[in-house]
Design a protein around this nucleic acid. Structure first.
Lengths: 248, 248
DNA sequence: CGCCAATGGCCTGAGTTCAGACCAATTTCC
DNA sequence: GGAAATTGGTCTGAACTCAGGCCATTGGCG
């Protein structure tokens, strides 16, 4: 037996705690973050990204490096760029339609990451919902939450529904007011997005999911933390059950 | 009003989602991780770190970079190094004794990070405990858990108790089997450690904390996820109450 | 004693990233 | 129409990081 990261018997604390330091290649990390933000619908099709200088500052990266990332996104067909005042970089990526194609074909390591994401999600998303429900939301935030919910239920095509769903979950996380929660949920949703693209869309599932979203929003607006958490847990469990079948 | 990361009124999803890419100094990140691991007692005083080549591989960093980090740790007096077979780098840092000194003197940004860590902790540590209790622990892992608990209760001096406490919480997290949980708890414990060094030690607090630890271990060994989570939530709430007073 | 293995110490050449300045295109506003 | 502002495009020298090889020191083993 080689030194696997998590042997069944013994628990190697140092090995568990020390994780790879950030991958060298800042520009890859930028591509990753921006691609995720675009695919999750944080920047919907047609919207304009912030100017390069602002984005570079936000990502704490030099403009040269950010531009490399932009070039990659451009080459991959996610964005297009126009120069001059009023120009900028606009999102052109059409949201992908979920399909059952790339079902298997994942490495064991990938599979493990997926399962881990599902477990972690069941912790952080309900936790974030609990926090958000505890917070005293202003009228503007209540509106944003309801709009995010409306976007999900209004989405007709599966691809749009998928993006709106991600946006909804990210919105709930952001309402918690915790940067760490947002980071965790973003990461989890990115992985989830991958998985959900690989399963067929069933109207029944969507309807069920939408009911849970609505129920969650009611709990959030009513300021009922425990109820919000329970609803979100159920929601995560239901989605996870769907997905675990996929990777089994 | 400037564009603050989290305005009270509006919620800027892109701003919340896009976070700084890795601080571009791999060697700083290494120093950070190793220093945290040492201070939290993952590598106790007197223990030997893995060989440079192994550590470099684990952190996914070149040996040259790792050595820069080692030099920094050596200069800071955390470790000492001996060459040759049977040599290596040993931890020399004496655990710091908590004291009420550096109470205030924290920037508003730091304060916000601290409070965020407390909120995030209340989500991930109970969640990790829930997961760990759900897992079917082997005899070896049960032993490790009980040993970690014994180490905490046996620690006489405050500095040792502080380290043993960190190790205990990291052990529980690691037992969850989720890499993401371990990462989150490690990060949270690092911040917590800072805060706890700045408050005076009260025997009553320690006794109370130890009782909660014991209660948690019972729930974990009995395989009662909900109970484990509730106990851990109470534990986090109690610590947080103590600490929030400090930074108020 | 002499060899071998393990470990830290050091060097080189190539690739990345950075900060900042300057150029070019395009829109907005007078 | 023209000036100004905004935005992407480009360049340069310095600093950081990497991969890999080689050297130096120490302890174990035959």
């Amino acid at each position: 037996m080689s030194a696997s990261p998590s042997e069944a018997a013994g628990l190697d604390l140092p090995e568990a705690v020390l994780r790879p330091v950030r991958g060298h290649h800042a520009f890859e990390a930028c591509v990753e973050q921006l691609a995720v933000a675009i695919r999750l619908g944080v920047y919907p099709r047609g919207s304009t990204l912030p100017p390069e200088r602002a984005l570079a500052a936000q990502l704490r990266v030099s403009r040269a490096t950010l531009r490399e990332a932009m070039a990659a996104l451009r080459q991959a067909g996610l964005v297009e760029t126009r120069r001059g005042r009023g120009g900028g970089t606009v999102v052109t990526l059409k949201p992908r339609t979920p399909s059952a194609r790339a079902a298997a074909r994942v490495s064991p390591q990938r599979r493990a990451e997926w399962l881990d994401a599902l477990e972690f999600r069941r912790i952080v998303e309900p936790g974030g919902a609990w926090l958000a429900a505890e917070t005293d939301l202003g009228p503007e935030r209540r509106e944003q939450l309801e709009r995010a919910l409306a976007d999900v239920t209004a989405a007709r095509r599966p691809a749009e529904h998928r993006q709106a769903d991600s946006r909804f979950h990210l919105t709930v996380a952001a309402l918690s007011g915790s940067a760490r929660v947002v980071e965790a949920v973003t990461s989890v949703q990115a992985t989830l997005h991958e998985m959900l693209l690989a399963i067929p869309v069933l109207d029944a599932n969507i309807a069920h999911s939408d009911r849970q979203h609505a129920s969650l929003v009611r709990a959030l607006l009513a300021g009922r933390p425990d109820q919000a958490r329970t609803v979100m847990e159920q929601h995560c469990d239901d989605t996870a059950a769907l997905l675990r079948g996929l990777v089994a």
